[in-house]
């Protein structure tokens, strides 16, 4: 089967569910509003991180989007119908991941640019420089995409969006900080912490902005492979 019609079908699935479109659109206001609040009341030492602080909230929307797009296939007999239309399961899952990644990347890049412009305006001379700001804006698109894919892969393994979000949201919002205080270097390679180095002007861990994103990409890739394996092996 060719890939393009499968991708087209997956794209229609996303467009025609209001909850998915709503979650995707929420990435922008959640990130920008939270960043603006942080920048306005900034006491942070890192101007780049102050400007992009809202990504930690925006990522929840991106993760929810990735998880819901996959978990809708596990409602009722949806997956059976999907796989009877597209029996090549690897190809189907690749199309699903692509249909999740592309819109998140687009929304993530726009969100990064808006956040940067607003951050520079609010922080004035204390704000981030353009080169570092643009790096963070690109990183915002990449990071949110990778986190959505990580959630998508995990949902395919667990066959439940609720379970995935139940693991990821506490992990992203709470656990990485708690663990970070206790065992510093372990937390540095968690998917959230590693990828968020791209939003810091200075960093002291072993990972830099791009190597941090690469670690998040490894997590996302591993989750997608595990998801693909699970979909291929199990009865639908």
């Amino acid at each position: 089967m060719p890939f393009q019609p499968v991708l087209h079908a997956e794209w229609i699935k996303i467009r025609t569910l209001r909850s998915l479109v709503g979650t995707l659109c929420a990435v922008l206001p959640a990130t920008v509003a939270c960043s603006a609040l942080s920048a306005a009341g900034s006491g942070g030492s890192d101007p780049l991180f102050s400007a992009f602080a809202g990504v930690s909230l925006g990522q929840i929307a991106a993760v929810t989007f990735g998880a819901t797009a996959v978990s809708s296939e596990f409602r009722g007999a949806a997956l059976r119908l999907t796989l009877s239309a597209v029996p090549d399961r690897r190809r189907w899952f690749a199309a699903k991941a692509t249909a999740i990644a592309l819109p998140v990347l687009a929304v993530g890049l726009v969100t990064g640019l808006v956040t940067l412009v607003l951050g520079r305006f609010l922080l004035g001379t204390a704000g981030p420089s353009w080169p570092e700001g643009l790096r963070a804006a690109l990183g915002c698109g990449a990071y949110l995409t990778l986190m959505a894919l990580f959630a998508a892969g995990l949902t395919a393994v667990l066959r439940s969006g609720t379970a995935t979000l139940g693991i990821l949201i506490p992990l992203l919002l709470i656990v990485s900080f708690v663990i970070g205080d206790v065992f510093g270097s372990v937390a540095d390679v968690l998917p959230g912490r590693a990828g968020q180095v791209v939003f810091q002007e200075t960093w002291d861990g072993p990972l830099g902005p791009w190597s941090g994103l690469a670690v998040t990409a490894l997590w996302a890739g591993a989750a997608l492979l595990a998801g693909a394996w699970s979909i291929r092996r199990r009865d639908a």
């Binding site: 019609p5 499968v6 087209h8 079908a9 229609i12 699935k13 025609t16 569910l17 209001r18 909850s19 809708s72 409602r75 009722g76 007999a77 949806a78 059976r80 119908l81 239309a85 597209v86």
Partner: peptide
Amino acid sequence: DAAHGSRTGRDHLRVLAASN
């Protein structure tokens, strides 16, 4: 119960038609 409750009947068929 193969169709998603939040999608319209027509959109459900559009997805299937597009895939093939």
